[in-house]
């Protein structure tokens, strides 16, 4: 809704913006794209009015300058990036506009994770993204991602094609600390048993080396590969700091063969238990343990390793 002739106060506009964002999210969650588009148009208008009301004429030059430098926010940015909780999001400061065409954070994380193919820590995700994909993915921005995703899932289950979710510990089926996964992966792949930290590391090494083989070499990629090669026996064959992807793949496969069978068995058992015990949200984001249950120290997973 464009600003009324009475020129509403910034507070009124902020309330209106928050309201419209919720409406957009609801419409998206319900799958009603038409309504979502209409609400979003209103939202844009309200934001424009807010800019005008707060910054006035003096800021117009600034904003215009900023716009040419940074470009306008991509049209889908707000719908995807806005935190999907009940708390109203503050109106975006106009200067913090994102460059045109930039992919939302969760989309970028998804790309990197798909490339890695195993549960990964934010730091690894960030360096893989930096090495292979355009732009940057600051690891610090990943910290709240999982919580936002969980909130979004709980308020509107399965409204998005995929969620970035937790890896589950094999024993307690609780969210493993600092590991991100994609909800569309098989549950086995998202379980983290005692050996999984290592097998995931080796899996990631193989996947990344395979990807590196298909691309022209770059210092970023070499650095990333070295991180793996230095810590896999027999992988660093050449000079220090240079990695032959083929050798890395062979070495990682050799070590993976040692662990794979045990790890797969542990993961499968844990996944079966997760399917039997947890609801949808629990399977994606981990079981919430109450102190009572864990205080007894007995868990189903401990004995069947």
């Amino acid at each position: 809704m464009p600003s009324s002739p009475g020129a509403p106060s910034p507070e009124e506009l902020e309330a209106r913006i928050a309201e419209l964002r919720t409406a957009v999210r609801r419409a998206m969650a319900a799958g009603d794209r038409q309504a979502a588009r209409a609400h979003r148009a209103e939202l844009r208008a309200a934001e424009g009015a807010w800019d005008e009301a707060v910054l006035g004429d003096t800021a117009l030059g600034d904003t215009a300058l900023g716009d040419t430098a940074l470009g306008e926010p991509a049209p889908d940015e707000t719908a995807d990036d806005a935190p999907s909780g009940e708390r109203p999001a503050p109106p975006p400061p106009p200067r913090a506009a994102v460059p045109r065409g930039l992919v939302p954070v969760r989309e970028r994380v998804h790309q990197a994770l798909t490339l890695i193919g195993a549960p990964a820590a934010p730091k690894l995700i960030a360096s893989v993204y930096a090495a292979f994909l355009p732009g940057q993915l600051p690891a610090a921005r990943l910290t709240s991602l999982r919580r936002d995703e969980e909130r979004s899932f709980r308020s509107a289950p399965y409204a998005r094609p995929y969620y970035l979710c937790a890896a589950l510990t094999a024993d307690l089926l609780a969210p493993a600390r600092g590991l991100l996964t994609v909800s569309t992966w098989p549950l086995e792949q998202r379980i983290s048993g005692p050996l999984s930290a290592r097998t995931d590391f080796l899996t990631a090494a193989i996947r990344i080396a395979e990807h590196a083989e298909r691309r022209p070499d770059s210092p970023d990629v070499q650095r990333l590969l070295w991180r793996f090669a230095a810590n896999i026996p027999g992988a660093a064959t050449g000079a220090v700091g240079t990695v032959e992807p083929g050798a890395l793949i062979a070495a990682a496969r050799a070590e993976l063969d040692v662990h794979a069978e045990t790890d797969r068995r542990q993961r499968r058992r844990a996944a079966d238990r997760a399917r039997a015990q947890l609801d949808d949200a629990g399977r994606l984001f981990g079981a919430r343990l109450r102190a009572m249950r864990s205080a007894t120290g007995t868990t189903d997973g401990e004995d069947d390793r």
């Binding site: 307690l172 600390r177 005692p194 662990h259 981990g286 079981a287 919430r288 343990l289 864990s294 205080a295």
Partner: peptide, 20 residues
Amino acid sequence: VPEVAYDDLGAVGDNEGREV
């Protein structure tokens, strides 16, 4: 090489209580 098992005892699930 097979000895790579890693158990994080920093928290039991999301419970960080000392007794647990």
